[in-house]
Simulated assay, not measured.
Amino acid sequence: MKMVLGIALASMLATAASAQDSPFRKELKRGDLTGTNMEIITSISELKPGDVSMRHIHHGDESYYFLEGGTIELPDGKQMPIPTGTVGLNVRDTPHGAYKVVGDKTIKLLTVHIVDKGKPLYDSPPK
């Protein structure tokens, strides 16, 4: 359940089918990961009720922490509450996404991505 929840939650960050970035994301800090061809990106994302995410991947790992929880609706119509304090990790190139924030609460999360430098932070999953 934790892995499914983790994969589902990170999807809220991207919104375009050819995902390059998210309009919900505010980048706080970016820097090189010492001794590698990777970078670390720290961001805050806020998704209001009605905001929709698209399925996407990251070219590296993503860690997240929900500063403010809420409820999301999955593609099958099932609603899932996300409690404040939910924490998780999504591994490289794992497709996740495609849902809508429902209810009356804005969801706010902190993310840290450790990704390949020069590749898009959000990308469309392979078909």
Rank of each mutant, 00 (worst) to 15 (best):
N90D: 07
V52M: 07
E68Q: 14
H96F: 00
G103C: 08
F24R: 07
T86V: 11
L9E: 08
V112N: 07
P95K: 05
T42P: 07
T111Q: 10
I114C: 07
T36Q: 07
K105Q: 15
M3D: 15
R25P: 11
A16C: 01
L109M: 13
K48V: 13
I57H: 04
G103H: 03
L33K: 09
A19F: 01
S11M: 05
T15L: 00
D104P: 15
R92E: 13
Q79D: 10
L28C: 12
Q20L: 06
V4I: 05
Q79M: 06
I57K: 03
L13R: 00
R25K: 09
D123K: 01
K26L: 10
G31E: 06
E62A: 13
H56T: 07
S53H: 06
S43G: 13
D93Y: 02
D104E: 14
A19I: 00
G69W: 02
L9Y: 02
K2S: 09
A8L: 04
E68S: 15
M1H: 10
E39H: 05
P120M: 02
M12I: 13
Q20P: 12
K48F: 06
L74Y: 05
G77L: 06
K26C: 13
D76F: 03
V91R: 09
K29T: 14
K2C: 05
K117F: 00
E27F: 06
G6I: 07
L89D: 14
Y99F: 09
G85R: 04
K48C: 10
S22P: 04
Y122N: 10
E39K: 06
L5F: 07
G103W: 01
L74W: 02
F66T: 15
L33P: 15
Y64M: 10
L47I: 02
E27R: 09
H96V: 03
V87T: 14
P83T: 13
S18T: 08
D116E: 10
I7F: 02
K29A: 15
H113R: 09
T94Y: 03
Y64W: 01
E27L: 06
E73N: 12
K108D: 14
K26P: 11
S18V: 05
L67E: 14
P81A: 02
T36H: 07
I107E: 12
G97P: 12
V91S: 13
S124L: 00
E46F: 02
P83M: 08
H59I: 02
Y64P: 11
D51L: 02
S22Q: 05
Q79R: 05
G103E: 04
A17L: 00
Y99G: 15
M1G: 15
K48D: 14
S45V: 03
L5V: 13
M1C: 10
T42M: 03
G35F: 02
D93T: 08
M54T: 09
K26W: 03
